[in-house]
Simulated scan of single mutants.
Amino acid sequence: MSGTFFGLGVGPGDPELLTLKAHRLLQRVDVVCFITNKDGYSLAADIARESLPTTRRQRHLPIEIAMCRDRTLIEQAYDQAAAQIGEALDHGHDVAFLCEGDPLFYGSFAYLLARLAPDYPCTSVPGISSLQAAGSALTQPLTTQGDRLAVISGLEDERDLLDALERFETVFIMKGGRRRHHIAAVIERAGRAHECAYLEHISTPAETRLRTLSRLPDGPGPYFSVFVVSRHHRSTP
């Protein structure tokens, strides 16, 4: 009998935002898998470190995936990871794959799920996403009754960004750090700069919250950054 593959959401950064269900699962699974950068660091594993067992042996399976736009290399890395995870599952070991935020909200788990679900039992443990964490960090509603919410990647072209800004009361723009000044210019063009906040590394010690785009630093920002454009925005803390 094969093991089960779990996509496990560890939340946006604060270890205390890990759910009890995720914590308990981490205590019992045989293998914990996570993505690392080229230096071997994994934010997801760092978030979950306090929930890993100390009284029993557990195998850790790091997977290096380059942060690049070459999808061929990235798909090859997922293929290799799926093969390693599949081997563990074949031996009856349960495997938990750690994901920042929620596994199925822009999560890498989706790519492994597509490869493994046809042959193995798979399930997901939800985590607090950057969307929810941003609303909490700003202490403002993301939506209220009658509002429409759009979630869009900061990598989308200007036309799609403008369309979302024109049609939705709240627009959540993810992964916009590298293009943050371009995105800010689009938000200005849409006439909604006064409704915008910019956040980085939400719920971590490095968290940055800017309630006005005029304070946006020069140059590109980090991968873990978001814009929240909302009718409910308050420009003062």
Rank of each mutant, 00 (worst) to 15 (best):
74 I>D: 02
133 A>Q: 04
124 S>H: 03
23 H>V: 02
45 A>T: 00
137 A>F: 10
38 K>V: 11
36 T>Y: 09
31 V>E: 04
89 L>V: 08
91 H>V: 02
83 A>W: 01
36 T>H: 10
158 E>I: 07
134 A>Q: 07
34 F>R: 03
118 P>T: 12
155 L>F: 14
41 Y>H: 14
87 E>M: 01
32 V>K: 03
135 G>K: 04
146 G>Q: 11
107 G>C: 08
104 L>I: 05
117 A>G: 00
93 H>V: 00
117 A>L: 03
82 A>I: 05
51 S>I: 03
65 I>Q: 03
31 V>D: 07
51 S>M: 09
100 E>G: 03
56 R>F: 08
135 G>W: 06
129 S>L: 09
28 R>P: 01
142 L>R: 04
149 L>E: 05
130 S>F: 09
152 I>E: 08
127 G>S: 08
80 Q>L: 13
91 H>L: 14
136 S>H: 07
128 I>V: 15
109 F>M: 05
103 P>V: 09
48 A>V: 09
91 H>P: 00
159 R>S: 14
39 D>Y: 09
78 Y>C: 06
64 E>I: 00
155 L>P: 00
98 L>S: 05
149 L>D: 04
91 H>M: 13
81 A>M: 06
107 G>Y: 07
47 I>C: 07
118 P>G: 11
138 L>V: 10
50 E>V: 10
145 Q>W: 12
53 P>I: 13
108 S>M: 13
108 S>E: 01
126 P>M: 11
96 A>N: 06
101 G>A: 08
81 A>Y: 11
93 H>E: 15
70 D>K: 08
91 H>T: 12
131 L>Y: 10
154 G>A: 13
135 G>P: 02
49 R>N: 09
82 A>T: 06
